[in-house]
C-alpha cells in the first residue's frame, strides 16, 4: 500500500513538473526566438521562423546584427537614458509612496480615507487621457538647474521622472502591506517615544523587503517600457529612452535581425533587475497575494 502511495506521489510530481516545464517553455520560447534570431541574417531568420530552427543557433550565425544595430542607433545612449530615468524614478517612488502608505495606515489624520479613495480612483484613469494636459503643464513649468531658472521641462531627464514618482498603484500596494504588519510593534515604539520618522525608518521599512521588491519591479517595468510620454517630451535624441529608440529600426524595409539584436540588448537590464529581486518578489506574492 505504501509502495502504491509512493508511486502515486512520484507520478503526481512527474506530471506536475512536466506541466510546469511546458508552461515555462511557452513563456521562454519568445525570448529564445528573439535571441537566436538576433544572430541570423534576415533571409535565414524569415525562413527559419516557420520551423523549429527558429529556436536553435543554426545556419549562418554571427554578431553582424549587433554591430549593425549600434551603427543604426546610439543604443548605449538609449539604454543609459532608460536605466537612469527608470532607476531614479524607482528609487524616489519607493521612498515617496512608502512614506505615503505609512501615513495612510499608521497616522491618524482627518480626511485620509477620502484622499486614499481619490488616489485609488486614479487607477482607472488611463494615462492617454491625461497625457496632453500633462504635456501642456510640463512645457510651461519652471526649473532651477545648472543654467539657472528656465521655463519648460521638455527635453530633460526630470520631465521623464517627476510625473511618475508617485502613483496610486504603488501607494495602494504599500497601504495593503502595511495593514498586515503587527500594530503592536508600532504602538510599542510610540510608547517608547519613537518619532513617526523613526518608526518608518527603523521598524516598518526593515520589515518591508518583499513589498519593496514588488513595487520596484512593477515600477521598473512600467518605466522601462515607457513610450508615449518620452515620445511627446523628448525632441532631442540625447534624452530618448530605449522604446523610442526601437522605432529607429522600423524603416521601409525592416531589418528584423537588427530589431532582434536591439531587443535582446534592451531586455538585459530588465532581466538583471528581475533576477536580482526575484526572491523577494516571489516572497511578496506568496505572502500578500499580489499578482504582478
Amino acid at each position: 500500500m505504501a509502495m502504491i502511495s509512493g508511486d502515486n506521489h512520484g507520478l503526481r510530481l512527474a506530471v506536475r513538473y512536466t506541466v510546469l516545464a511546458l508552461i515555462a517553455l511557452i513563456f521562454i520560447f519568445p525570448l529564445v526566438f528573439m535571441v537566436m534570431s538576433s544572430f541570423k541574417p534576415d533571409q535565414q531568420l524569415l525562413v527559419d521562423a516557420s520551423s523549429l530552427r527558429a529556436f536553435l543557433p543554426v545556419g549562418d550565425i554571427s554578431l553582424n546584427n549587433y554591430s549593425a544595430a549600434f551603427e543604426r542607433a546610439p543604443v548605449g545612449l538609449f539604454v543609459f537614458n532608460s536605466v537612469l530615468v527608470t532607476g531614479v524614478t524607482v528609487a524616489l517612488s519607493l521612498l515617496i509612496c512608502s512614506a505615503a502608505g505609512f501615513a495612510f495606515v499608521f497616522i491618524n489624520w482627518k480626511g485620509r480615507g477620502v484622499i486614499l479613495s481619490v488616489l485609488l480612483a486614479t487607477l482607472i484613469v488611463p494615462f492617454e487621457t491625461i497625457a496632453i494636459p500633462m504635456l501642456l503643464m510640463v512645457s510651461k513649468l519652471p526649473w532651477l538647474g545648472m543654467e539657472g531658472l528656465t521655463w519648460g521641462w521638455l527635453n530633460s531627464y526630470h520631465v521623464q521622472i517627476i510625473p511618475f514618482i508617485a502613483d496610486g498603484l504603488t501607494i495602494f500596494l504599500f497601504v495593503q502591506y502595511f495593514k498586515d504588519l503587527p500594530g503592536e510593534l508600532i504602538e510599542a515604539a510610540r510608547v517608547e517615544g519613537a518619532s513617526w520618522f523613526q518608526i518608518y525608518r527603523r521598524i516598518v521599512m526593515p520589515l518591508s523587503g518583499p513589498i519593496l521588491a514588488t513595487a520596484a519591479i512593477l515600477k521598473f517595468l512600467a518605466m522601462y517600457n515607457q513610450y508615449l510620454w518620452p515620445l511627446m517630451v523628448t525632441q532631442e535624441e540625447g534624452y530618448r529612452p530605449v522604446m523610442v529608440g526601437l522605432q529607429y529600426f522600423f524603416q521601409l524595409n525592416i531589418a528584423w535581425g537588427e530589431v532582434m539584436a536591439y531587443l535582446s540588448l534592451i531586455t538585459l537590464p530588465v532581466l538583471g533587475f528581475y533576477l536580482y529581486l526575484q526572491k523577494a518578489f516571489i516572497a511578496s506574492i506568496a505572502s500578500t497575494g499580489v499578482k504582478g
Binding site: 501642456l136 512645457s139 519648460g152 511627446m232 525632441q235 532631442e236 535624441e237 529608440g245
Partner: peptide
C-alpha cells in the same frame, strides 16, 4: 538638425506643436 524615427515623427510634431516647441 534634430532627427526622429519616421514611425514616431508625426506624433512628435503634434506633441511639439501642442507644447509650443
Amino acid at each position: 538638425l534634430q532627427t526622429f524615427p519616421q514611425a514616431a515623427y508625426n506624433d512628435s510634431v503634434v506633441a511639439g506643436a501642442l507644447a509650443g516647441n
